[in-house]
């Protein structure tokens, strides 16, 4: 097997990287893929909390790269899906305790066993970013529809070029149709006009995310939820399916505009 390593990154903090990572990972696992999630946010780990796995952590990423334990021992199996695993970040150690070379080695090892390896990247463009992208084959950029998040996403896209990631995919998170309609929020078209990369999906702003985060059960597994559907569509597109974009109550022109953008 040779799996694919995807880093989930944004530049700006708090835009939804961890949420996206948990949902895409769970969504791929629901489709039967073997998935490993790596929390590369050392010192500020929280992917384990979002996955509801915090109380099962014994070893972490640093233990693995420092060879205090075997990789197998540090991987935590998900509570609900047998083919989903998490490699947690260390909470206590220094941010520079991992080197990019070690991340590359780790990713190579995981690729042998998993279909997808998703890396939850810390905010910023410093050491933690360099580690998180070192072993990645491709990137998913998460942004919210506001000027500063888009600016940072643009910077990240430029930086990724030096890591030979030239075709990153975009997730626009926390879109509020009511605000877009009033012209108070950038719409998908505005964001895409600047970033001009492949759009993977649009996720609405939805308070149910907070509920599912507290439960440790990512929204993607809830059939009835609107955000869940948005994530399921993203997962399907990662798997190469041609899924139409949800309208999110936008005006009709919205649909056509996205289609046109994607065909470019």
């Amino acid at each position: 097997m040779s799996g694919k390593v995807l880093v989930i990154t944004s530049g700006k903090g708090g835009v939804g990287k961890t949420t996206t990572c948990a949902n895409i990972g769970t969504g791929l696992a629901i489709r039967g893929k073997k998935v490993a999630l790596i929390d590369a946010d050392i010192g500020l780990r929280n992917l384990d909390v979002v996955m509801g796995l915090e109380n099962r952590i014994v070893f972490d990423l640093i233990d693995v790269v420092e060879k205090n334990c075997k990789l197998r021992q540090a991987l935590i199996k998900d509570r609900r899906f047998d083919n989903l695993y998490l490699l947690p970040a260390a909470q206590t150690k220094e941010k520079d305790a991992v080197k990019p070379e070690q991340m590359v080695e780790l990713c190579e090892e995981l690729k042998l066993d998993f279909d997808y390896i998703l890396i939850d990247c810390p905010a910023g463009i410093e050491h933690g970013f360099k580690n998180a992208v070192a072993g990645a084959d491709d990137a998913i950029i998460v942004t919210t529809p506001d000027v500063s998040a888009v600016r940072d996403a643009d910077r990240i896209i430029g930086l990724l070029q030096t890591y030979e990631i030239t075709d990153p995919k975009l997730v626009i998170n926390r879109v509020r149709p009511d605000m877009v309609r009033r012209g108070d929020m950038m719409d998908v078209n505005d964001v895409n006009d600047i970033l001009a990369i492949t759009l993977l999906g649009v996720v609405p702003d939805d308070q149910s995310i907070i509920v599912s985060t507290n439960k440790g059960e990512p929204a993607v597994s809830e059939q009835s939820s609107r955000v869940g559907q948005a994530y399921r569509n993203i997962v399907a597109r990662i798997e190469g399916e041609d899924v139409p974009f949800m309208s999110l109550d936008f005006d009709l022109g919205f649909f056509e505009r996205i289609k046109r953008l994607l065909k470019k």
């Binding site: 940072d152 643009d154 910077r155 430029g158 001009a196």
Partner: peptide, 11 residues
């Protein structure tokens, strides 16, 4: 001087 790409933030 010719460049064949979009200049992104920070460049």
């Amino acid at each position: 001087f010719t460049i064949k790409k979009t200049l992104r933030s920070g460049q």
